[in-house]
């Protein structure tokens, strides 16, 4: 019988059968969660953020920093509501975003690059890892839905553009092409023909926000920050609702 002794130094962890059983269950849940969040969160992101994340020439100053954090804070909030409330695990957001990145990278390489020959630079996914780490950290330190909604939601959105800038800045370099000033990302888009995504559908820099010049990006980021503070508690409660433990008589 593996029992802990008061005089053991250092204290020995409990290693009986029940401990091994619960550890085995943890591993099963880890595998389950890995594929669940790759599959579910990736589909959610692909169909709500989709093209802004697929294509280099969609990563603009206006829509991309607005839409991506807003749609990406959803699953992290829902998963945090279960993992933090019930298991005191401050890693819901990091888990979701790690799974998302694994799924996106596999697809970009094998579906876009190897099957249809898009250069990998054209389909690089954005990263949300710094945003997720900070969101988890704020929840852990504050243990407060309100504080995490406000500070965490804002941080999640505001960190998005700066954390991606080192990856994508080089593609925003201006070039002259056909007597017009474009970015390298624009030229990529023109060179690699996409029959399902013609130029007239490209939603970038629409409206008059671009007349603010260099302020377009921070304006979009702060708009996203406001919306994320609202989206976070909404999805926290959605996650809580989905994680019901009710049994019913009929369906």
């Amino acid at each position: 019988m593996a029992t802990t002794n008061l005089f053991d130094f250092p204290p020995q962890p409990y290693t009986g059968e029940k401990a091994r059983l619960t550890r085995a269950f943890d591993y099963l849940i880890l595998v389950l969660a890995l594929f669940l969040f790759i599959g579910a969160f990736h589909l959610h992101m692909a169909l709500t953020v989709g093209d802004w994340d697929f294509w280099l020439d969609w990563k603009d100053r206006q829509w991309w920093p607005l839409v991506t954090p807003l749609m990406a804070i959803t699953f992290p909030a829902a998963v945090q509501s279960v993992m933090w409330t019930h298991f005191r695990l401050p890693l819901g957001a990091t888990l979701c975003v790690s799974c998302l990145l694994i799924g996106m990278w596999i697809t970009r390489i094998f579906a876009y690059h190897y099957w249809n020959y898009f250069p990998i630079n054209v389909v690089l996914p954005a990263t949300l890892m710094p945003s997720a780490l900070v969101l988890d950290m704020i929840l852990m330190l504050s243990n407060s839905l309100t504080v995490t909604s406000i500070l965490g939601g804002m941080s999640f959105a505001l960190l998005f553009y700066p954390s991606n800038w080192p990856i994508f800045a080089m593609f925003h370099t201006s070039v002259e092409y056909g007597n017009a000033q474009l970015t390298i990302a624009d030229v990529f888009g023109f060179q690699y023909i996409r029959t399902g995504m013609p130029e007239y559908l490209r939603l970038i820099e629409r409206g008059t926000l671009r007349t603010y010049g260099q302020y377009a990006t921070p304006l979009s980021a702060f708009c996203s920050a406001l919306l994320c503070t609202l989206m976070y508690p909404l999805w926290w409660h959605l996650g809580k609702w989905f994680a019901t433990i009710r049994y019913v008589k009929t369906i």
């Binding site: 669940l36 599959g39 579910a40 692909a46 697929f54 579906a111 099957w115 029959t195 399902g196 995504m197």
Partner: peptide, 20 residues
């Protein structure tokens, strides 16, 4: 969930790639 991964992640996004 493993089957959900292939359906919701890999082959779902690959749809976008193929239809280009």
């Amino acid at each position: 969930t493993f089957a959900v991964y292939w359906a919701g992640s890999y082959f779902a996004e690959q749809d976008n790639s193929w239809h280009q």
